[in-house]
Design a protein around this nucleic acid. Structure first.
Lengths: 105, 105
DNA sequence: TCTCTATTTGCCTATTTTGCGAAATAGACA
DNA sequence: TGTCTATTTCGCAAAATAGGCAAATAGAGA
């Protein structure tokens, strides 16, 4: 197994992306977008208790600024979808390890 | 492609793990630990500019509390290593998507 | 043009996170 | 036992983040 070159990685950039994902509502949003694009008001409905519109909008802009989402305005609505293919695979991998991560002793 | 069941996931738990990873120093730490365990003072040396010992120790406890690291005291030193196998694969997947995530327009 | 709807932004407050120095702890070894 | 070393915790101040209301914006459609 080759050594992992920790020097080559831009940890500030990576932290920005992780930070964008480090919130329950934003995690729900990206998971919902794994299947198909959704507009802001549809996403709002999914966020049952945290569904203040300005808050939802702000979460979306955090994800967009991290480069994870792309927006597209059509008619009255703004639709969001995941930015890239690798992201879907990444989310699946995240779901797996969060299950494995054990509580500390 | 089957639908992704967004209801089954514990987003609070997942956010906790993502939050633990959402810091440049902590990302460097977990990447360094992909190869082999390291003790606190070795990790400190890797964190060139953010190498205050109490800060490093705090970062380690954040990662440990998220269930990502395991500590083991041997002799004078405390050694840390990654908690689970899936984590390594997850980190590789993360490295890939962070590269792909595009800057917003 | 005006109006109506969907979405974003500004502003404020409350909470959390960060980083550091100093003090505390834990345990190895004489 | 006492001392020395590695590491963690405490307490604080600065910075970042979150959530909500109200106001602003953008653009569709009459």
């Amino acid at each position: 197994m080759e050594l992992y070159d920790i020097k080559r990685i831009d940890y500030d950039q990576q932290a920005k992306v992780m930070k964008a994902l480090a919130h329950p509502s934003r995690l729900l949003i990206v998971h919902a977008l794994m299947d198909h694009e959704l507009c802001v008001c549809e996403l709002r409905e999914l966020l049952q208790h945290q569904n203040n519109l300005s808050t939802v909008s702000r979460h979306l802009s955090v994800l967009k600024n991290a480069g994870l989402l792309v927006e597209e305005k059509r008619g009255l609505y703004v639709y969001y979808h995941l930015c890239c293919n690798g992201l879907r695979e990444f989310l699946v991998s995240m779901d797996r390890i969060v299950g494995e991560a054990k509580e500390p002793t």
